[in-house]
Design a protein around this nucleic acid. Sequence first.
DNA 1: GCTTTCATGTGACGTTGTCATGTGATCTAT
DNA 2: ATAGATCACATGACAACGTCACATGAAAGC
Lengths: 188, 188
Amino acid sequence: MTRAETAATTRRALVRAASELLDEGGPDAVTLRAVGARAGVSRGAPYGHFENKDHLLTQLAVDAWNSLAEEAGRLRAAPETPVRARLEGGLLALIALARRQPHLFALMFNTPANTPAAAEAANRVANQFLALVADVVGEADAPRYGALLMSSAYGIAGMELSGHLATETWHVSVEQLVHMLVDPLRPR
Amino acid sequence: MTRAETAATTRRALVRAASELLDEGGPDAVTLRAVGARAGVSRGAPYGHFENKDHLLTQLAVDAWNSLAEEAGRLRAAPETPVRARLEGGLLALIALARRQPHLFALMFNTPANTPAAAEAANRVANQFLALVADVVGEADAPRYGALLMSSAYGIAGMELSGHLATETWHVSVEQLVHMLVDPLRPR
DNA sequence: GCTTTCATGTGACGTTGTCATGTGATCTAT
DNA sequence: ATAGATCACATGACAACGTCACATGAAAGC
């Protein structure tokens, strides 16, 4: 392997190790020493690839934003599905991500995008959702409703993750809540 | 001062110090050493009053939940205000809290209620919101709409805090989003 | 007045992120 | 091809952190 190849390989191994540790044990489990060990390098190796620990975590968020944008794009290119169902599918994809990788989800949403690449990746998702919404309510109202729907879906997912939806006060399913958001939407 | 009095005083000082440090410098600034120093005691003193650092932070969340519940209760007891405006005021109170004390807000919502007292305090808020919503849509639909509204308001606040609402994709104000949530509600 | 209790202070330990420095392999230029 | 530069990585060190065991001194109870 050439020098650039080995470097790229280690970098990928570091990101993968950090992602696995985050999923398995939450943020506290992602120590640079553990990441290095799982990636087969030492504890100081990440500093050759990332400015610091935060930037390594940011890379996880960037990757997640990008695959979420891809997923939303696939949904939009499903012409046989009604527009409202496609939009609902996009919101449910967000919630599925929160359930599958809760710590990664928190990293994406509860943290400011502290890097240009992160902001760009998050924007890609926003634009895909904007397009999904525009297919339902039209271009003019899409920004307002898009912001409302994405914020609400994020809020529903977050409330479920933190357990605040599971109290006796509200006995509703997350799917029901998402449906309540999308159902009343009509082109005007 | 009797022994119980001094103990209660230091406990209050610890909570106050932790709250101030959280507001001023975020979670990283809340170290037990800094809390102790600001409260006028040593770094080990908190362990006489709280099991853990986490339990000290939980106390901050409990207090915040309780004052939020009080605020919502005051809103509900304002008979001259229309029901929908009262509900909107409740949601805006949540958002105002997020703007005033963002780190405390994150502590309340992005963390599971890891103590019975915390769960109870959060439930008090939920029930107050439930009542505000019931005054608008009726008792039958209140749980569904209450869960939706509180999740959405939390989501809007969180998206604003993390900067994800300030992109070029959606140019909307938070107040506009809250209004879009409350405006279409009607008793059925 | 003597003993118990208890809030608090202090020393210590393991862990963490981070940096300075060392090292050995790869690249480049003659 | 070989000598020097470059670069990925390892290692030692340091300050800060949460946490606990233990010391201490004052209030409580008899």
